[in-house]
Amino acid sequence: MRERCHRLLELGRADRLPHFRVRMEQLPAVAGYVLKVTREAYPTLDIPVHSRWGHFDVGGVARNAELDARLASLPREERARAKLDLVITSVLLDAGSGPRWKYHEAGGGLYARSEGLAVASFRMFLAGAFSSDPHQPLRADAAGLTGLTREALARGFQVTEANPLEGLDGRLSLLHGLGRVLPRPGALYDALAPRGGTVRASEVLGLVLDRLGPIWPGRITLDGVNLGDVWPHSSLGPPESADGLVPFHKLSQWLTYSLLEPLAEGGLEVTHLDELTGLPEYRNGGLLVDLGLLVPRDGRLLEEAFLPGSEPIVEWRALTVALLDEVGNRVRETLGRTPAQLPLAKVLQGGTWSAGRRIAAEKRAGGTPPIRIESDGTVF
């Protein structure tokens, strides 16, 4: 992933890409903006890893503590499996919501976008929506996931004509696929536990890609293998060539980051976090466009909506992955931190994702990204 994305960045620095100009002179400004946002959110620089778990406590509501209390009587390993059940289903439901959708928590607040999706999926999980056993609601299993109906998912996410959620069918398809490939999502714990007390992040991602690969719809296949979030770019090679493919695996990497806490609960430490890349999604990528590090060659990129597989989007995402490495290096240099002390996963949390959201809100009503994606609920 990193190698292909940095190859496109080198072409961009030489002004040889078809869709974006790369203005490296803007890198200090981007890193400075990220640092400003990070210091405001984490004055002591005690930054958690970028994962799904922080979203569950949005609005100052201690939902993670609520979950812990519900799971307290279970053995350590079963608590880990239950938390994996929750976070895997929640991440797979996390692709962009669209600008109009909101979730109103019973007796609580109104939430939108990723936080709203987190709270909705959290409440569905606690209500037993993904379990086939009413006596064990706090789990997800194959029968519960494959039996989930469109109506039940729409009801759980409060979807109506006046409150539309983009990619509802795509999300449902992912959960059905998850139920077909795993007896329960928490079984990933049992696949990793025999490896001892530590496991590398790349090994966790490899397991996620291997076990969840078949769930991704309508993707490129290579030697009979469904590649998932992998797309061609003509600057690397012809479309039919493996050399021309750029892998991203955004949701799989977001999921891997989000597995760290449940695995730790079960006694497994994940190491070498910087083997993973930054996440190529519209907040991180939007930050680079809004602050002028990436400049579209054609103004229509800022006006029209594009499919995830269109080459301008593939180029934008690849440049985002490579430039997040550059931003991370700048942030560490300024703070005098090493990659071990401040891995990219913490720069994202501190960080680039929040900075992308903030600059979007400053520039456009509703905080929409500068480039629009026609989401099918399975990529972003």
Rank of each mutant, 00 (worst) to 15 (best):
P217Q: 12
I215G: 02
E240I: 00
V295W: 05
T221H: 05
G309S: 15
P239W: 04
P296H: 09
E315W: 08
I313V: 15
H272A: 09
L279H: 00
P217M: 08
L301Q: 07
E275H: 09
D243P: 05
I220K: 12
L268V: 11
S241P: 03
P262E: 11
S241I: 04
N284K: 04
L255I: 13
P239N: 06
V270H: 07
L263M: 15
A264S: 10
P296V: 11
R297K: 14
S235A: 15
G266T: 10
W216D: 03
Y257M: 00
L227A: 04
T320R: 02
G299D: 11
G224D: 02
K250N: 02
V225R: 15
E265Q: 11
H233Y: 06
G299C: 06
R219F: 00
S234K: 09
V321C: 05
K250A: 00
W216R: 10
A322C: 08
Q253R: 04
E275P: 05
V321I: 13
I220E: 07
V321E: 10
L287H: 15
G218K: 12
R283G: 01
E311A: 13
V289I: 15
V270M: 08
L236H: 06
D298N: 15
G224T: 04
L263G: 15
V295S: 10
L227I: 05
S310N: 12
G286Q: 09
R219D: 04
P312S: 08
L279T: 00
W254D: 00
S235K: 12
G224R: 13
V225C: 03
L302N: 11
G237D: 14
R219C: 07
W231Y: 15
L268D: 07
H249K: 01
W216K: 06
V295K: 05
D274E: 13
H249E: 01
E240V: 01
L293A: 15
V295C: 05
P312R: 14
L259D: 03
E240Q: 12
W254P: 00
L259P: 02
